[in-house]
Lab assay of single mutants.
Amino acid sequence: TEEYTYTDKEKADRAAKEWANRGYTVTVTQDGPTYRVRVG
């Protein structure tokens, strides 16, 4: 499991979509002003 942190919702959504397109399980959680994209 890897985790990426973004401050921009659009970038987080785009990253999540790209990982999902590659067949990974993706979870996006909002943590205050940041968005965490957990992959795998």
Rank of each mutant, 00 (worst) to 15 (best):
R38M: 12
Y6Q: 01
E18I: 12
D13G: 06
G32R: 01
T1D: 10
D31R: 06
D31Y: 08
E2M: 15
D8R: 05
G40K: 13
K17F: 11
R38W: 09
K9P: 09
E18G: 06
Y35F: 12
A12Q: 01
T29H: 09
D13F: 15
T1A: 11
R22G: 05
N21H: 09
G32Y: 04
Q30F: 07
K17Y: 11
G23W: 02
V28M: 08
D31K: 06
Y35V: 04
V28H: 02
G32M: 02
T25D: 08
V26H: 00
R36G: 02
E10K: 10
Q30P: 05
T5S: 08
V37S: 00
A20I: 14
K17T: 10
Q30T: 07
R14A: 14
T25Q: 11
V28E: 02
N21W: 08
E10Y: 10
T29G: 04
R14Q: 14
Q30M: 10
A12G: 02
T34C: 12
K9G: 06
A15P: 00
Y35N: 00
N21F: 09
V26Y: 02
Y35H: 03
N21M: 14
T27K: 07
D31H: 09
V39L: 06
E2T: 15
D8P: 01
Y35P: 00
G32P: 07
V26L: 02
N21A: 14
N21K: 14
Y6M: 03
W19R: 01
E2G: 13
D31A: 06
R14M: 11
E3P: 04
K17V: 09
T5N: 07
R14K: 13
D13K: 08
T7Y: 14
P33Q: 12
V39R: 04
N21L: 13
K9F: 12
T34K: 08
R14L: 12
T5V: 14
G40M: 14
K9T: 03
R14D: 09
G32H: 03
Y4P: 02
V28A: 03
R22E: 06
A16W: 04
T29D: 07
G40Y: 15
A15W: 06
Y6E: 01
V39P: 03
D8L: 06
A20K: 12
Y35C: 02
N21T: 10
Q30R: 11
R14W: 11
A16G: 04
W19C: 06
G32E: 02
R22D: 04
T29M: 10
N21G: 11
A16L: 04
T7G: 08
E10D: 12
V37G: 00
A12K: 01
K9V: 06
E2R: 15
E2Q: 15
P33F: 12
T34Y: 15
K9N: 04
Q30Y: 07
V39T: 03
Y35A: 01
V37E: 00
D8V: 07
T7K: 09
K11H: 12
D8H: 06
R14N: 11
W19T: 01
E18H: 12
G40H: 14
T29P: 00
A12D: 00
N21I: 11
G40N: 13
A20R: 14
T1W: 15
A12L: 03
G23M: 03
T1M: 13
T1K: 07
E10V: 10
T29N: 06
T25V: 12
V39G: 01
T34M: 13
K11V: 12
P33R: 08
R14H: 10
V26G: 00
A15I: 08
E18A: 10
D13N: 11
T34E: 07
A15K: 06
K11E: 15
D13A: 10
E3L: 09
A12I: 01
R14F: 10
Q30A: 08
V28D: 00
V28S: 03
K9H: 07
R38D: 04
Y6S: 02
D31F: 08
D31I: 12
V39I: 10
R38F: 12
T5W: 13
R36A: 05
E3V: 13
K17R: 13
A20P: 00
T5Q: 08
R14G: 07
Y35S: 02
Y35W: 15
E10M: 09
E18N: 07
E10G: 09
Y24Q: 03
Q30L: 09
K11G: 09
A20F: 11
A20E: 13
Y35T: 04
W19V: 01
T25L: 11
V26M: 01
Y6I: 02
T29A: 06
T34S: 08
A12Y: 02
T1V: 14
T7A: 10
T29I: 14
A16R: 05
R38V: 14
E3M: 09
Y6L: 02
E3F: 09
T27N: 07
Y24A: 04
T29F: 14
W19F: 09
P33L: 12
T1F: 15
A12P: 00
T29V: 13
W19L: 06
V39H: 02
V28W: 04
G23D: 02
T5F: 13
P33E: 14
T1G: 12
E3W: 11
T27E: 09
W19K: 01
V26S: 03
R38N: 09
E2P: 07
G23I: 01
G23Y: 02
T27V: 11
T34A: 08
G32A: 02
V37P: 00
R36Q: 06
V26N: 00
Y6F: 14
K9R: 12
R36V: 15
V39D: 00
V37L: 10
Y4F: 12
